[in-house]
Every structure is written in C-alpha cells, then in structure tokens.
C-alpha cells in the first residue's frame, strides 16, 4: 500500500520525478544569487536570500529522496539501467551532503555583501554533480523507460531474470519442441509475471485466470518490457506506448505495434509447468 503510494500509483504518475523539480530549481537559484552577490555587491541581502533558497532546496531534496529510493528498488536487478540508477542515487546523496555542509559553512556569515570563496566552490561543485545526476535521471526515463507506464501494472514486477537452459533436456525429447520446466511459477499470483531467459530467448510468463501464458519479452514497437506490462482479460499492454497483444495468440490488438509477438506453448511435464521451445534454438 505504502509502496504503491510512494510509486505514485494512485496519482498514475511517479512521485520522484515530480518532486525533484524543487531541489534542482532551488539549488540553481541559490547559485545565481551567489553569483549576483559578486556582480552586484550594492544589492543588499543576496547572500541571505541564497541561503534560504538552498535551505528549501535541501528540505525538498530529502523529501524527493524517499520515493526515489522506492523507485530504485523496483528496477529489476539485471536491468541495463540499474547501474545508471545506482550512479544517479549515489551522486544525489553526495550532492545533498555537500549542500548540507554548504548551509553550515555559510550560516555564520549571512550579512556579508559578497559570498565567500569556500561556499561558492561548494555550490559550483554541487551544481556540476547535480547536472550530471539529473541528466542520468532523465536518461533513466527517456532511454530506459524506468517508471514509464508502471501505474498500469497492479502487481509486482519481476525482481530479476531466471536463466535456464535446455541443453540437458534435448536428449529426452523426441519431438521438435523441447519443454523446459520453469521453477518459481507456483509463487505467481494472478496477473503476475516471470522474466525467463532460455539459451538467449527472453520470455515473459504470465499467470492469467489460473493458467500460464508464455510470449516474447520485447514489444514489437519500441521493444518495451512486457514482463512489466499491465493486463486486461487476455491482453498484455506494453508499459511504454500502450501497444496491446493477445497473450494466447501473440496478435496485436492495439497499436502502435504492428507485428505480432512470438508465443510459446505451456504444458505440464512431470507435474511441473514447462515452456516449449523449438529444438532448432538449441545452441
């Protein structure tokens, strides 16, 4: 419940990217006022004004950090964006710490007409790091689709990818399709998914209406992650641009995607749910 709230699901918009406007804008304002105090020493109180802008910046940064942490934990551990997110998080913590120190350093000289060298340097370094970090945060959204369409998904998304192989199974099967038993499917709730990789083939396994369906992980439009998609009846919706596919047939039911998904057969093998892959895919 609390996690859903911090992820902004009731608002249908993630909270972290909303809140970060404030520290970014206020730290910039603070630096501008520092620079203005050097350029126009006759204008009174710029140093004090800069301090208050920075103070509000630190307060809002700490508020923004909370949903930021939650969003971070929600990224699949083997997602290519996880490292970017770790850098983003680390840089932000450093920036907040620097501004905390900055506030302490300048608090004793608020009546100065000009900002002194030490706190000015701290502000410049803070803005430099924040620019990089903010840029990485933007890349997380616009390159890697982190947080995009997450509110459409009601259940938790996979925490990592299961890696399986059919190498040892090939000899037991006589048909052209090899069935690979999938561990962990028993713990899936309705409309939950597993992300599975079998000898390179990446598959989403979804539980719908007590049955399991297997289809390719990547949307055929911009290759969004269907294991993080939303479900309605027997349709999966891509979190990124809302393309819909029938999980039973792989057919596109709503664009922008035009090409159907690969689907895979699910059968019971020795009492276990197994997904069928063509033998030709054996390495």
């Amino acid at each position: 419940m609390l996690k859903d709230f911090l992820e902004g699901k009731p608002l249908r918009h993630p909270l972290h990217p909303m809140l970060v406007h404030f520290p970014i804008g206020l730290f910039l304002l603070s630096l501008l006022l520092d620079l203005a105090s050097l350029a126009f020493p006759s204008v009174p109180n710029l140093v004090r004004d800069s301090f208050y802008a920075m103070l509000l910046g630190v307060i809002t940064a700490l508020i923004a950090a909370v949903p930021g942490f939650v969003d971070y934990t929600d990224i699949r551990s083997d997602h290519p964006a996880k490292r970017t997110a770790t850098t983003h998080l680390t840089l932000n913590l450093i920036v907040v710490a620097l501004y905390g120190i900055n506030l302490g350093v300048r608090s004793s000289s608020l009546v100065d007409p000009k900002i002194s060298f030490g706190p000015l340097i701290l502000s410049l370094v803070g803005i430099a790091l924040l620019s990089v970090s903010g840029y990485l945060g933007g890349r997380l959204v616009y390159d890697d689709g982190i947080g995009v369409g997450r509110h459409k998904r009601r259940t938790p998304t996979p925490e990592s990818t299961l890696h399986l192989s059919m190498a040892n199974l090939a000899s037991n099967e006589k048909s052209d399709v090899i069935f690979v038993p999938i561990p962990e499917v028993d713990r899936l709730s309705e409309r939950e998914t597993l992300r599975v990789e079998i000898d390179g083939q990446v598959i989403t396994i979804a539980k719908i209406d007590q049955d399991f369906y297997a289809f390719q992980e990547f949307c055929t439009h911009r290759y969004g992650p269907l294991s993080e998609g939303g479900f309605q009846d027997f349709k999966v919706q891509c979190p990124w641009h809302n393309s819909c596919f029938d999980v039973r047939t792989g057919k596109v039911t709503q664009g922008p995607a035009k090409v159907d998904l690969k689907t895979f057969k699910i059968e019971m093998r020795d009492g276990k749910v197994a997904v069928g892959l063509p033998r030709a895919a054996t390495p």
Binding site: Y142, G145, G149, R150, Y223, W240, N242
Partner: peptide
C-alpha cells in the same frame, strides 16, 4: 511521458 510514452525510447531505439 509516463502514460503515453512521448519521447520515451525514441533516441535509444
């Protein structure tokens, strides 16, 4: 951005 994916995965296609 977050519901309709405008500009999302455009440059990273």
């Amino acid at each position: 951005t977050y519901t309709y994916g405008i500009s999302v995965a455009r440059m990273s296609k």
